[in-house]
């Protein structure tokens, strides 16, 4: 843990991917790092205006901590380049630490959801150099970037199986997300109704979890196959 980094509170941690993350054992780092490098390179090449906007940040380090995945990422802004790598045991503090659910972080970077709104609703937490984070957010927002697409493009010839995989992951996530939002809604209902709802939802969830567990195991296997295929 970095000394200054804030982990979201218990409430925030109640996120669907956390369950998935618990089930999903950490992936080998090397192929993920290669993927990140490819992606960064691709964005650098196709969106030079972003790098121009990031110029004042040269030397700034960001820690991006999805609260529902077993991996954290360190991003270092260089001169005319961006370096991204997985960092599971955070070794040094960063200038900025940003934590939140993985897909929220991705949607924010994609410009699909408003980062300020995420912050207002306490879904995101931020520590460190606020101005640097704002610069990064504005720079990413200045171009039309589809991170999912960038990931796929970075995979090159493997993009078709990976796209299928991303879709599965997305579906898994959104399925879980729906289940969880049921529970959340129930939590705001009256106590009696809440107990009833919880019992029902628990049964339903237990069934779905079992189903998802199976799917996740499959997904994990496919990911590992995929990782071996990524050219070194």
């Amino acid at each position: 843990m970095p000394p200054a980094a804030a982990r979201p509170t218990d409430n925030d941690a109640f996120s669907p991917l956390l369950m998935a993350g618990l089930l999903l054992r950490p992936l080998p780092k090397a192929p993920l790092n290669r993927l990140l490098r490819h992606m960064a390179g691709h964005i650098q090449k196709n969106h030079p205006a972003i790098l121009e906007r990031l110029a004042p940040l040269a030397g700034t380090e960001f820690l991006i901590c999805p609260t529902d995945l077993p991996h954290d990422m360190r991003m270092i802004i260089g001169t005319g380049q961006v370096d991204c790598r997985i960092e599971d045991d955070i070794k040094a503090p960063a200038d900025v630490t940003i934590s939140g659910p993985f897909l929220s972080l991705m949607d924010m970077m994609d410009g699909r959801i408003d980062g300020d709104a995420l912050f207002f609703s306490r879904s995101l937490s931020v520590e460190g150099d606020t101005e640097a984070l704002l610069t990064l957010r504005n720079a990413m927002d200045s171009e039309d970037i589809d991170l999912r697409q960038e990931i796929l493009t970075s995979l090159g010839p493997l993009k078709t199986p990976a796209a299928a995989l991303l879709n599965i992951t997305g579906r898994l996530y959104h399925g879980l997300s729906r289940d969880m939002s049921h529970i959340r809604r129930a939590a705001t209902a009256s106590l009696a109704r809440r107990c009833d709802a919880l019992t029902q939802e628990n049964q339903e969830l237990a069934r779905k979890t079992a189903e998802l567990e199976k799917k996740l195991t499959k997904t994990q296997n496919r990911l590992q196959v995929l990782n071996r295929k990524i050219p070194s």
């Binding site: 804030a6 931020v126 520590e127 460190g128 606020t130 101005e131 984070l133």
Partner: peptide, 15 residues
């Protein structure tokens, strides 16, 4: 109120 002068401090569950 520029971002350069803003800090967020998580203290327990409070922000």
């Amino acid at each position: 109120s520029p971002a350069s002068h803003v800090t967020y401090v998580q203290s327990g569950a409070d922000l």
